[in-house]
């Protein structure tokens, strides 16, 4: 028959077309299967990652909370040795944060100052009870011993690599420096005193004067304000004194919020 070679050729074409299309169909359906499985697998892995991230975040928070608590406790120990009340620490912390923020430091740095400032008197753990608990004024020799708490506090904290403890070391070291250079332990002046030290100085004194202690009555507000005006540029950084008066209402609000209960 004449048509048979043609038919044979067509048959062959048909067969190879069927083979190729078979393989294509198989490949395509395999491809779909692979994508489906990959999607399912990757979703699982994504869920797993999310779970781990959440775990890490929780741990991170735990660490931060612990750090805050340790630091706060250290501050409270320092203050318990210095005839101050627990709320003094909280108020100084909050005043320091506000001063830092209005001075132009970032939110994060201001928050750190809030956490570090309560440790300013940690060095007092090394001052003998006899001197610490003495009612009334110190004599000169006693005052010299008292003054060492700044250096001692610094020595306690300076070896840490933690940013917060480094900041606390600076604060412990410089919170008794005065803007005019007559403070201690170094007698540095002006902006050579670290801003952390200048901030804590004003926060600490404002609170100490306004609080009643076993050895003294609380000062009247007017007397405190007069002293601040007088000491602007002497004891205190004038910029910070200006900030203090500009935002006086919010400072007084914090003082009421964290008032001591008797």
């Amino acid at each position: 028959m004449e048509a048979s070679p043609l038919i044979e050729e067509i048959e062959n074409l048909k067969n190879s077309f069927l083979q190729v299309s078979d393989r294509l169909v198989k490949d395509i359906s395999r491809q779909e299967k692979i994508m489906l499985r990959s999607d399912r697998r990757q979703k699982k892995e994504y869920d797993e990652l999310q779970r781990k991230f959440a775990e890490v975040a929780a741990l991170q928070q735990e660490i931060e909370e612990t750090q805050k608590e340790v630091i706060f406790t250290m501050g409270a120990i320092g203050e318990s040795r210095s005839k101050e009340t627990g709320n003094h620490v909280k108020r100084v912390a909050e005043y320091s944060r506000m001063l830092a923020l209005h001075y132009g430091l970032t939110e994060a740095e201001s928050e750190m100052i809030k956490q570090a400032s309560p440790m300013h008197d940690i060095g007092k753990v090394a001052i003998p009870d006899l001197i610490l608990n003495k009612p009334g004024r110190f004599n000169e020799a006693e005052f010299e011993i008292m003054k060492t708490h700044a250096q001692i506090g610094y020595d306690m904290l300076k070896h840490s690599n933690r940013p917060l403890l480094k900041m606390a070391a600076t604060i412990a070291y410089e919170h008794h420096e005065k803007y005019n250079g007559t403070g201690y332990p170094q007698g540095t002046y002006g902006e050579n005193i670290h801003i952390y030290g200048r901030i804590t100085a004003i926060a600490d004194v404002f609170d100490a004067l306004g609080s009643e202690r076993c050895y003294k009555k609380a000062w009247e507000d007017e007397a405190i304000f007069n002293l601040f005006r007088e000491q602007s540029g002497e004891h205190f950084d004038p910029k910070l004194v200006a900030i203090f008066f500009k935002h006086l209402d919010s400072f007084l609000l914090v003082r009421r919020q964290f008032a001591d209960q008797f």
Binding site: R30, Q31, I34, M35, R37, S38, R41, Q42, E45
Partner: peptide, 12 residues
Amino acid sequence: IYFNSSSSKVFF
């Protein structure tokens, strides 16, 4: 442990 979709194709 973990592999992308293309790796899954290669393993096939």
